[in-house]
Design a protein around this nucleic acid. Structure first.
Length: 931
RNA sequence: GGGCGGUUAGCUCAGUGGUAGAGCACUUCGUUCACACCGAAGGGGUCACUGGUUCAAGUCCAGUACCGCCCACCA
């Protein structure tokens, strides 16, 4: 009776803190050589932009379950944690902080700004680490990585340089997505679509010869300052014979041609589209087809700058904000009579994911990465099944996107991130000066001294074609190929950088898109490019657990990079977990005020309750609604576990001696062990299937609905009786096994209880225990069926008592039964009778049937005629309805002939029972009415 | 415009062809006897709709409606 002092309320706070530090001190989170080989997860590194939210808690909880489960199965488990520098996102957080101080990053300068970001990284990283630990995650902190660690930086540069050399990375000038708020380019997948109410302006462009006009429609009239043409579809009859004529561009009053191109849709509006190659990706393509030189401002004018202000010198619009300019230009057009009409219109816009600003498509020179060659093997890896998505519907999502992958704009005009390791210089090459120029900027030194790790390229600006000076150093520049070149040198050697700078080279100020470095996560975290022991042992990882919104941004890129650099898949499974929404189905976000810090819930309910609440809602679904109510339920479950264990410990003597179990004992003993064995299997299978919801439900239903509600209740008397060894052994076995099964989900409370059970050894932790695999011999279908029917009987009799208005706790003298009834003890103790007697009682009584047995409850002078009549009438109605349904089936020859025999047989038995029930109920009703 | 999810009790959700389930909420009863963060009993659902396949459909098929998410260059 050592534990009678335990509180009746489980107190997570003290238990959770205690165990986490003990686990850490005992090195539980580091890989331990096992019998089943390595099992690895490199966790998705959270952004150092603040703190973890509910989605993170779920994500990492799933991984912690997998890690602990696999560890118990004997794997050498490495869960490698870390954090992501998160380029734009972190950059923005710090810029916002500066703004509050009335400063900009330019006031600090690049170096000071980066210092400032590092400071913030320490702060945010510290918060996140504390959150991780509060949640109880068994991750190997000794291997924690950050995507800007020096070694990680080296890995990033290595890939960049290699791809540069292979020609996968190139410099290009094209219309990119410009975020005017953050003043950087962003990739196609970092924007959100949004429809806003706006106007569609119809503007007349008159023919130069005065013969009428062409009407175009636009939502962005301000871009007309950079129009180069108006296009119509060659099939559009309305413009037959007009293509080739000159139009006057209103306001600027310059001539632009009316051209034919496949792009305009004749069905839309007038079928005529103004072409602004510098400010629209479609128009850019048209411009390319027109053969324009994008380096020539005369051919491709630009009218909006990086600050989203209009560039149009000599006009009143110069320097205006883009939206202000739109207003003024429309006024001007109206005044001059060019405005045909204005319609209300839903404008589809691209909104920057990071700043919320309207994206401005802008002609800009950036670094790009060719994706097709990288994507091909990554498609194959998934299509062939080497990488498997769960739920598998995401396979198609992935494949569809990968098959239409577009080149990736890599450069960002930010300061926080991996700086692009390229120096460049504009040179003018002619046939004559080619070798001199090479010598001038140190080319031979480059070739001799630095070739091993570095690479270089010459790109002719007029055609964008690359010339590889290494492959073809003496390729003479001819009259045709002479002209402006950009010389790019890609190097990591600081000495060489200085030499180049001395020769007029300038280092690229841009940094890489943060996902470029994230893509290397599964191997760069293990020390790659060094061939480390970790890399040999733990790569490839086993599973990636992540959110569906980064399948393209991250998952796809890791697969591509892994296959390209490691020549092997980075993980074999991808599990996409559900998005966590608020109770009302809103997105959880700080800006909406709907974000919740998991720590608040942990303070209130405990980490185990928090984890379980999330996990029990997480299967193969795509979203979950989460709130305090759900955690309360889990908290209550923890409390139930606590109290059941407390009760068990109070009943187990210090001299407890276990006995052999299988096949022995009372019905309930065999039943609960059979249920335990099945639960163990279900939990394992559910985890293997990444279905945490199913695993949690099995655990909860078993423990609460079967072990507590039935087994413990039935065992109460026996636990203190003469043969207490057996029920005690069952109780301890169930608790011990349950603690192990539930440990991955609720590590703290299970450890606490597990350690109090008889037989627990010093410094032995559940993580080191074997995952329970109860033998087949424990499964006893007969016991389960019998027990199920006993439970039904008890429920029915209890219901009869309740309906008769008897106090549930009151023990009645006797219950009469007619029919075959074994296990009278169960009935006696659970339905609370002193005796079970055969036959029918003499006096007034009420009767109910279950499992073919009639139960009579003597109620001399106590029967409420009205109540009983109502109860019986209802019962008759229900039985008649069921019987009718049953007969309908049985009278249908199609059914009796075609349905499986056992189904028909079951139906016959059911009908028979119902038939008997109906007549019995009728007889009783008559009896009652005669009372 | 295309694709993917969802629609089951008041709420949140399980349910992979054989007579509809859980938790919460609600009603009634019950606190010396593990737990009121508890126990017992109960009420509550033509499983969104329309067709089809089948002896049998919440479950399979086709379509419709509504909700959510993703992709797409219609100015």
């Amino acid at each position: 009776m050592t534990d009678s002092t335990l509180s009746t309320r489980y107190d997570p706070k003290q238990v959770e803190e205690k165990w986490y530090s003990i686990w850490e001190q005992n090195g539980l989170f580091q890989p331990r050589p096992g019998t089943s080989g390595p099992y690895t997860i490199t966790i998705p590194p959270p952004n150092v932009t603040g703190s973890l939210h509910m989605g993170h808690a779920l994500c990492y909880a799933v991984q912690d379950v997998l890690g602990r489960y696999k560890r118990m199965q004997g794997y050498e488990v490495l869960i490698l944690p870390g954090m992501d520098h998160a380029g734009i996102a972190t950059h923005k957080v710090v810029e916002m902080q500066l703004k509050e101080e009335g400063l900009t990053r330019y006031d600090l300068g690049r170096e000071k700004f980066i210092e400032r970001v590092w400071q913030w990284k320490e702060e945010s990283g510290g918060t996140i680490l504390r959150q991780f630990k509060r949640l109880g995650f068994a991750f190997d902190w000794s291997r924690e990585r950050f995507t800007m660690d020096p070694a990680y930086h080296d890995a990033v540069l290595k890939v960049f340089i290699e791809w540069f050399e292979r020609g996968l990375i190139y410099r290009g000038k094209r219309v990119i997505n410009w975020d005017p708020g953050l003043r950087t380019s962003v990739s196609d997948i970092e924007m959100n679509d949004e429809v806003r109410r706006g106007k569609l302006y119809h503007i007349n462009y008159p023919f130069a010869d005065g013969s009428g006009h062409v009407t175009i429609a636009t939502t962005r009239p301000e871009t007309m300052l950079a129009d180069v043409a108006v296009a119509v579809n060659p099939k559009d009859k309305r413009y037959d014979g007009l293509v080739g004529k000159k139009l006057i561009l209103p306001i600027l009053r310059v001539e632009i041609p009316l051209i034919a191109d496949e792009y305009p849709d004749p069905e839309f509006g007038t079928g005529a589209v103004k072409i602004t190659p510098a400010h629209d990706p479609n128009d850019f393509e048209v411009g390319k087809r027109m053969g324009l030189d994008f380096n020539d401002l005369k051919q491709v004018p630009v009218c909006i700058g990086e600050d989203a202000k209009v560039i149009a010198e000599g006009t009143p619009f110069h320097g205006l904000d883009r939206f202000e300019a739109r207003k003024r230009i429309v006024e001007e057009l109206e005044k001059e009579g060019y405005l045909e009409k204005v319609e209300d219109y839903e404008i589809p816009l691209k909104i920057s994911d990071r700043s919320g600003q309207v994206i401005e498509p802008l002609l800009s020179e950036q670094w790009f990465c060719s994706m097709k060659p990288l994507a091909a093997p990554a498609i194959e890896a998934v299509r062939s099944g080497k990488i498997k998505f769960t739920p598998d519907r995401y396979t198609d999502v992935y494949l569809r996107w990968m098959e239409e992958i577009r080149d990736w704009c890599l450069s960002r005009q930010l300061w926080w991130g991996h700086r692009i390791p390229v120096l460049s210089k504009r040179i003018h090459l002619t046939e004559k000066n080619w070798p001199d120029e090479l010598l001038y900027w140190g080319w031979d030194e480059f070739v001799e001294g630095h070739w091993e790790n570095d690479t270089a390229r010459l790109v002719r600006r007029s055609d964008g074609k690359a010339h590889d000076p290494i492959e073809d150093p003496l390729n003479p520049v001819t009259a045709e190929t002479e002209g402006e070149y950009d010389a790019f040198v890609c190097t990591t050697d600081p000495e060489f950088v200085r030499l180049l700078e001395k020769n007029g080279f300038v280092q690229d100020p841009d940094v890489l898109d943060t996902w470029f470095s994230s893509a290397l996560w599964p191997f760069a975290t293990m020390g790659w490019p060094e061939q480390t022991e970790d890399l040999k042992k733990f790569y490839p990882t086993n599973v990636l657990v992540t959110a569906r919104d980064i399948i393209y941004l991250w998952v796809a890129r890791m697969i591509m990079d892994g296959l390209d650099q490691m020549k092997g898949i980075p993980f074999s499974d991808v599990y996409i977990y559900a998005t966590v929404l608020t109770e009302t189905g809103q997105r959880m976000s700080k800006s909406l005020g709907t974000g919740v810090d998991p720590i608040e819930f942990i303070d209130q309910f405990g980490a185990d309750a928090m984890r379980f609440a999330l996990l029990i809602q997480t299967g193969h679904n795509q979203e979950i609604r989460f709130g305090e109510k759900r955690i309360e339920e889990s908290r209550n479950f923890c409390n139930k576990i606590w109290n059941a264990s407390r009760f068990a410990l109070m009943n187990i003597a210090d001299d407890y001696e276990p006995v052999d179990l299988p096949g022995k004992g009372a019905l309930e003993d065999r039943w609960i062990l059979s249920r335990l064995a099945k639960t163990a299997r279900e939990v394992g299978e559910s985890i293997d299937d990444y279905n945490m919801m199913s695993a949690c439900k099995s655990l909860q239903e078993f423990f609460w609905g079967e072990f507590c509600d039935w087994y413990i209740e039935l065992a109460k008397d026996r636990l203190s009786g003469d043969n207490k060894e057996l029920p005690q052994t069952v109780v301890v076995t169930v608790l011990d096994t349950f603690c192990k099964l539930a440990h991955p989900f609720m590590p703290h409370i299970t450890e606490e209880i597990g350690r109090m059970l008889p037989g627990a050894k010093e410094n032995q932790f559940l993580d080191h225990e074997a995952w329970p695999t109860p033998p087949d011999a424990w499964i006893d279908e007969h016991a389960e069926a019998t027990m199920t029917s006993q439970m039904e009987i008890v429920r029915v009799v209890r219901s009869l008592r309740q309906d008769s208005g008897i106090n549930p706790k009151q023990v009645l003298p006797s219950l009469f039964i007619e029919g075959e009834a074994a296990f009278e003890d169960i009935l006696k103790s659970q339905a609370k009778f002193e005796r079970i007697e055969r036959g029918k009682p003499e006096g007034d009584h009420v009767t109910i049937s279950a499992e073919g047995i009639d139960f009579h409850l003597p109620l001399e002078g106590l029967i409420d005629k009205g109540n009983e009549t109502e109860r019986l009438t209802k019962a008759i109605e229900k039985a008649k309805k069921d019987l009718a349904g049953s007969m309908l089936r049985l009278n249908n020859p199609q059914f009796t002939e075609r349905a499986k025999p056992e189904i028909v047989q079951r139906e016959r038995e059911a009908a028979e029972t119902l038939q008997g029930e109906v007549s019995a109920l009728r007889a009783r009703l008559e009896q009652v009415q005669n009372m």
